[in-house]
Computed example of a mutant assay.
Amino acid sequence: MRDPYQVLGVAKTASEAEIKKAFRKLAKASHPDSNQDDPKAQERFAEINAAYEIVGDKEKRGKFDRGEIDAEGKPRFQGGFEDFQGFSSRGPRPGPGAQSFRWTSQGGAGQGAGDDDILSEILSGFSNRAGFGARRGGPRPQAPRTAGEDVQATVAVTLEQLMLGEKVQVELPTGRTLEVSIPAGTRSGKQIRLRGQGWASPDGGPTGDAMVTVEFVPHPLFKVEGDNLRIELPVSLDEAVLGAKVRVPTLGGPVTMTVPAGSNGGRLMRLKGKGLPTALGGHGDLLVALKLMLPDEIDPDFEALMRRWREAGHASVRGPEYGA
């Protein structure tokens, strides 16, 4: 494989953030899903992932920079048996009286007394660097595959979409656009995990996930209070004094509600089951706060009535706690 720095298009002095940024950009542009007409897209994508596996990992990057591993992550031998007298096929043969070594069928060695520790140290050194097991021909341990990185995304959802159970489009940093169903009971700020929709693994491991944060679009009429919705409903003076049947908007369409006679402004009415869908399959309630509204122009007869009401000395509506 080519030099991983060249594959990612970064300098050897690049920071971790610069390397990650370059990888994401190249992976997004070369992803096979986005290049279905290009037969070499899969090969490029695999090369990019393999390069990031080396220089995107602090420990492996250090080993590569020091020449301990190659561009494929395989160990490079830093010396051979030639470094040790008696092992080299080209070195001097042991002379008379020197201790000789012979390999046994178990993969160890037979030798004179006192050399066990030296040979063990040598084999251990090669085992650490080259991945050989303690026994010749024994199974090589398989390194766990690296999982792909998760990605973060945000999706704006209207209250109407949530009420109707409509799917919403989510744009992911990988370049994919998905249609996602928002589960009942989801509230603003909650995250939804989309399995396998993150970055691909650099070495064939599991693909990362997409973590999608739901954000509610502010509504001109309704405020969200948990599973409930709240709305301020303007009512006229005569409706408040005499009572009336009024139309109230809900997310499912307008309904008729009775305003009791003698209702004060701020009175809270409750419409059962007209709130948001819940995780248990039901709905919250709609809380209707009455907002008393006077006409823009005061009728002279109404004004005269209010003057007579004041002159009659009716008790104040404010108690002593308000300084009345």
Rank of each mutant, 00 (worst) to 15 (best):
M1G: 14
R2D: 15
K21G: 05
K25E: 14
A27K: 03
A29K: 09
A29N: 11
N35W: 03
N35T: 09
D37E: 11
D38W: 02
F45H: 09
A46H: 07
N49T: 02
G62Q: 12
K74Q: 14
G79L: 02
G79T: 10
G91W: 03
P94F: 04
G97P: 13
A98N: 15
G108Q: 08
A109E: 09
Q111D: 08
I118N: 11
E121H: 09
E121G: 11
G125I: 07
F126E: 05
R129F: 01
A130P: 11
F132H: 10
G138Q: 06
D150K: 01
Q152E: 15
Q152V: 15
A153M: 08
V155C: 03
A156S: 13
M163A: 07
V170C: 02
E171M: 04
T177K: 13
V180H: 03
S181D: 13
K190R: 13
L194V: 10
G198D: 00
S201C: 03
G208Q: 04
M211I: 15
V217Y: 03
P218E: 07
V224R: 09
G243A: 02
T250D: 01
G253M: 10
V255T: 11
V255D: 01
T256V: 10
P260F: 05
G266Q: 13
M269P: 04
L276D: 00
P277S: 02
P277L: 02
L280N: 14
E297H: 11
D299T: 11
F302L: 14
G313W: 04
A315Y: 11
A315G: 15
S316D: 10
G319M: 06
E321F: 05
G323I: 09
